[in-house]
Simulated scan of single mutants.
Amino acid sequence: MSYLHIPKKGKIYSVNEGNAKNWDGPTAKFVEKCKFPKDGSPAKSLRYIGR
């Protein structure tokens, strides 16, 4: 099994939100936190790289 490691700092996140209905709870929660942080930090920018 492989694991995804996410840095604690960064300004950009990259996901295909078209697949959001298939995400598990922790993934959806992480993306929501990137878009709408509740700790006063700035929101992250979305960057999607695909075809």
Rank of each mutant, 00 (worst) to 15 (best):
S2F: 13
S2A: 12
S2K: 13
S2E: 10
Y3L: 14
L4N: 07
L4A: 08
L4Q: 10
H5C: 10
H5F: 14
I6G: 01
I6V: 15
I6Q: 03
I6N: 01
I6A: 05
P7R: 14
P7T: 13
P7M: 06
P7K: 13
P7E: 05
K8F: 13
K9N: 10
K9Y: 09
G10Q: 03
G10V: 06
G10H: 04
K11D: 10
K11G: 11
K11A: 12
K11T: 13
K11M: 04
K11F: 06
I12Q: 02
I12M: 02
Y13Q: 04
Y13V: 09
Y13W: 07
Y13C: 08
S14Q: 06
S14F: 01
S14P: 06
V15D: 03
V15Q: 05
V15S: 05
V15G: 01
V15K: 04
V15Y: 13
V15W: 08
V15F: 15
N16V: 05
N16I: 05
N16F: 08
N16L: 06
E17V: 07
E17S: 10
E17I: 11
E17L: 15
E17D: 11
E17T: 08
G18K: 10
G18S: 06
N19H: 09
N19R: 09
N19K: 12
N19I: 10
A20E: 06
A20D: 01
N22P: 00
N22K: 13
N22V: 13
W23T: 01
D24L: 11
D24G: 08
G25I: 14
G25V: 15
G25Q: 15
P26V: 13
P26L: 08
P26T: 10
P26G: 05
P26Q: 09
P26W: 06
P26H: 07
T27N: 03
A28S: 14
A28C: 08
A28G: 08
A28E: 09
K29N: 11
K29D: 11
K29V: 09
K29M: 07
F30K: 06
F30G: 03
V31C: 04
V31K: 03
E32P: 06
E32D: 15
E32Y: 13
E32F: 12
E32K: 15
E32A: 15
K33P: 00
K33C: 08
K33A: 15
C34F: 01
C34E: 00
C34W: 02
K35Y: 04
K35R: 12
K35A: 00
K35C: 02
K35E: 04
F36A: 00
F36S: 00
P37S: 07
P37G: 05
P37F: 05
K38T: 15
K38R: 13
K38W: 00
D39Y: 07
D39V: 05
D39W: 08
D39R: 12
G40L: 09
G40D: 03
G40F: 10
S41C: 03
S41K: 14
S41N: 05
P42C: 02
A43C: 13
A43G: 12
K44Y: 04
K44G: 06
K44C: 10
S45K: 15
S45D: 09
L46F: 01
L46V: 03
L46Q: 09
R47Q: 12
Y48V: 08
Y48A: 04
G50S: 02
R51Y: 06
